[in-house]
Write a protein that binds this DNA or RNA. Structure first.
Lengths: 205, 205
DNA sequence: TCAGTTACTAGAACAAGATTCTAGGAGTCG
DNA sequence: CGACTCCTAGAATCTTGTTCTAGTAACTGA
């Protein structure tokens, strides 16, 4: 009497379980690295059976892939939300940089995990990731397109924008996450935001 | 009568074997990913026994770490060589970007491997890497220091230079290696070299 | 040249841990 | 209720990383 269950919908308990497994997996991966964690570790942390793990994810690799894809998706959604709250070319470009830094600092464990992998994944997972990225980038370009058209931003090969805008903050965050740099991204993001804007704004020389 | 063998020196055959193992490992890793390759795969590809592998490297992880460290070292040496052939601030900054792109295109498999890991390594390997990076960065800063002192380049927090200069080309290469972008780095490097120079040269606003 | 010593190699034995399989619960729909 | 699907358990299995013992080859110093 509570709710209809279309066959495509997952049961609430299922969603719950999957999430608890991914949470547990992230904890384990953060503590011991992906190779260092065993199925048993995840199983104990998530308080479920081996069978359950394999029913939902198929393999240890499957858990790692799902966590990765879920993480990327969350990041992308957040970025698009932030972007849509921005107005104007300069503010939008800078918003991308700032969001990257803020999100990474707020979700340190997940950010660290997202930086570590994506190679070693199955072809299927790689294809899914590529599709997710394609959709995301299409939305981002739709957002910035008008600014290029209006001449506020330089017209460049499409593949140049992401590296120019996000490259520096991304590299900074990567090194910060792996312990090379001390100061958190928040302390540096304005510097990188300015640089990003400088590199894509329209301007003679 | 041929040569003296100080105890610290390795025999020629040993060097040979180690190199052949690392070569074989890179091939295997490239084809199947690190997790996907077994000790047996490497052993067959390098045409040696399991015992030999463990004698030289201690573990599968040890092979992966050694390959990584060796690769980073090669890259660093090449970069410093290139840098020392450059003259002036602008040329030097641009040389860094160009070398990054050129080297990655020339050593695609190795570059791809170097982008994939460094997490999941032993504490010891991480410490060695940190030390290698420290030394490398010290040399690079020694090179650029005078240009900052003379006012040709902006004075910034030290941790900002690498991300600003290398971040964009690095991000481009990463995506190119994982198949998101089509055009090889060589086609884009001048664009990124210009951007790098713009972001660190001294200049009012 | 030869005993002593060290560096290296082989491959069988072992252990850890990833995956599979069978036997059920527990909701859900007709 | 009875058929059906989704999900969970945990023992059994199989893969694969690692260890161990017994060597062989190369070098050293006398």
């Amino acid at each position: 009497m509570r709710r209809k269950n279309h066959p495509t919908e997952l049961r609430a308990a299922t969603v719950e379980r999957r999430e608890s497994v991914l949470r547990a997996a992230l904890q384990c991966f953060t503590r011991s690295g992906v190779d260092g964690t065993t199925i048993g570790d995840i199983q104990k942390a998530a308080q479920c059976s081996v069978g359950s793990l394999y029913h939902h994810f198929g393999s240890k690799e499957g858990i790692a892939e799902e966590l990765f894809i879920e993480g990327i998706s969350r990041f992308n959604r957040g970025m698009l939300r932030r972007l849509r709250r921005s107005t104007g070319a300069e503010e939008s470009v800078k918003a991308v940089v700032r969001f990257y830094g803020d999100w990474s600092a707020r979700n340190r464990a997940l950010a660290s995990y997202l930086h570590s992998r994506d190679i070693d994944f199955s072809d299927d997972a790689r294809a899914r990731l590529k599709e997710i990225y394609r959709r995301y980038i299409a939305e981002v370009f739709t957002w910035f397109g008008p600014y290029v058209a209006s001449g506020e931003m330089r017209a460049l090969p499409p593949d140049a924008y992401v590296p120019l805008i996000s490259g520096p903050i991304q590299e900074y965050v990567r090194r910060w996450l792996s312990g090379h740099y001390e100061r958190p991204p928040g302390a540096m993001k304005e510097l990188f935001a300015d640089a990003a804007w400088k590199s894509v704004r329209a301007e003679p020389n």
